[in-house]
Design a protein around this nucleic acid. Structure first.
Lengths: 205, 205
DNA sequence: AAGATCACCGACTGGCTGGTCGGTTTAAGT
DNA sequence: ACTTAAACCGACCAGCCAGTCGGTGATCTT
């Protein structure tokens, strides 16, 4: 069983370094040798554990990327509290970690979708699945908010979800280059403005 | 002078096809030969007109990309009419052309920034400049709106501009894969919601 | 202890890429 | 008609990349 442990450890190491480099330099711009050099491993080791570069990346998606998105954007908004508050806090936290990223390259999922769109249908399918899960989750959170009386019953949940996803993806891109901290602050302020326009009017006077 | 005309024509042809392929397949994934094959031209012709692949791309940015962004996102919001209406119409039109794009790969500028971020500082600078021009223009349009009495005097113009850019960049990405037309519709509806939250309250009754 | 299997090594291959360069065609100037 | 230079050709080069394969030492099984 010790063998199996070693196997898992090596594969894990490869995937972590792989994601790091793919995120930093892009998939097509990162050679398998780049990753191997970083780990002091050989071609043989790589192709012993993975069928191909593509297979390697898909495993990274399933093992690392999915979980990352889940813990960052999906799990935090599950629950029955005030939906808008949950989402606000979730975005706040997600953007905060982005601010503290030494080298930030934007929203991982978005970067990869951008790179593979029209180039690799197979990988695109996997990435799109994650996005869809996020969307479904946002929609159901907003629906819950409508039932709970925190959100105006007339709002289009799918529309709100789309608008939230859009703005998040966009601001993550814009935070990369210029004063991420200030942009985060500005963004959150506008998000709250927007939320005011869709929450139930507390008291008609 | 005929020589000069031919020169310009060839360079123009190369750049148009170049942008097309770079947009479709990405810069690093498109070889100079790919472009030349499309045009039935030779390596010699390419390196006669351009110093390098990078020089070629920068000229594409200056000659084609800048103008495209200008005519699509900048010029339409210049003027002294209702700022929010100008922006709404501008986004409406920009997204409509995206809907009708047979093969859509998202917001060109965003795609390229994504690809070059952390990889080519020189090109990034050029792309960032375009983004900055867009931002400055949006901010000044919103400022005008505040003076004209269409937008609440208390709103943060930079914040609104950032939020608008973010959501536009994001929705263009999300329109690529799934039902662009429906998403455009939903997006525009939410944009109007948002705008309602920052326009001056017409009548307090 | 012997054999088998695992985990890994690294030289190698074939295909592609950005860029070079000596040469040829085309057209303008005189 | 002749010169000259612009516009273009395409074989070639060096370097890189994904993937292959014959081998080797470590570890487990019996």
């Amino acid at each position: 069983m010790d063998k199996n442990l070693k196997r898992m450890a090596t594969m894990q190491r490869m995937q972590i370094t792989g994601l790091e480099l793919f995120y930093k330099k892009g998939y097509y711009n990162t050679s398998v040798d780049d990753i191997l050099k970083e780990l002091s491993l050989s071609k043989g080791a790589f192709y012993y554990h993975f069928d191909s570069k593509e297979d390697f990346f898909i495993q990274i998606i399933e093992n690392l990327l999915v979980r990352r998105i889940y813990s960052m954007l999906i799990e935090p908004i599950e629950g029955h509290d005030n939906a808008l508050e949950l989402i606000t806090n979730c975005f706040e936290n997600a953007l905060e970690t982005a601010v503290h990223n030494e080298l930030d390259y934007g929203f991982v999922l978005n970067n990869f979708m951008n790179e593979f769109n029209g180039r690799n249908e197979n990988i695109m399918k996997h990435l799109n699945d994650i996005l869809k899960i996020w969307e479904v989750n946002l929609v159901s959170t907003i629906q819950k908010g409508k039932f709970n009386g925190h959100i105006d019953r007339h709002v289009d949940a799918e529309g709100v979800a789309l608008y939230l996803m859009s703005s998040y993806i966009g601001v993550r891109t814009l935070m990369v280059e210029n004063s991420p901290s200030a942009r985060k602050y500005r963004f959150m302020a506008q998000l709250k403005h927007y939320f005011k326009s869709i929450e139930v009017k507390q008291s008609a006077f």
